[in-house]
């Protein structure tokens, strides 16, 4: 196959967001922004798209883009692959609190095991984390240590 044909084949693989209500991807899936909803009545912000405010139950929610950085509140190093995980093991899994309040759990990448700790400052990064049944590559929001 010629170089041009290979290029065409590679470009025809689509990249999709793992969950469109949580993550909007752009730039061929290399960039992304976390999505949420903000309650116009009580001011609480949520990750993803609840139908009603989870705090005050108001229906008056507006879509917002969330800050792509935060702080690790807890973590683990998963050494046994759970069903459905398409990545390697071991993998670092952390819960991260973003400034708006929500806690978002995902894999931490580009981080040596010994550097992962409660209080670590992290930033959002995109990674392909699997393929769907149509052959599309699934882009997942992940965390990586924020350069100091």
């Amino acid at each position: 196959m010629s170089e041009t044909d290979k290029e065409e084949e590679r470009k025809s693989v689509q990249r999709v967001s793992v969950t469109e209500t949580r993550l909007k991807i752009s730039g061929d899936g290399t960039r992304g922004v976390l999505l949420g909803k903000k309650c116009q009545d009580c001011g609480q912000t949520f990750f993803g798209a609840p139908q009603f405010c989870l705090k005050c139950t108001s229906a008056n929610l507006k879509p917002v883009e969330l800050t792509g950085e935060g702080v690790v509140t807890t973590y683990t190093i998963v050494r046994q692959a759970p069903p459905g995980w398409q990545g390697d093991v071991p993998y670092l899994l952390a819960t991260v609190r973003i400034p708006e309040g929500p806690h978002i759990a995902s894999e931490v990448v580009d981080c040596p095991e010994e550097d992962l700790k409660v209080g670590l400052a992290v930033e959002l990064t995109m990674r392909v984390g699997g393929t769907d049944k149509n052959g599309n590559e699934i882009v997942i929001y992940k965390w990586r240590p924020r350069p100091s």
Binding site: V78, P82, G84, G87, L93, A105, S106, E107, G129, I140
Partner: peptide, 11 residues
């Protein structure tokens, strides 16, 4: 959740 790696009770 399974693709994200966050659905594992013991984790």
């Amino acid at each position: 959740e399974r693709l994200i790696g966050a659905d594992f009770m013991m984790a």
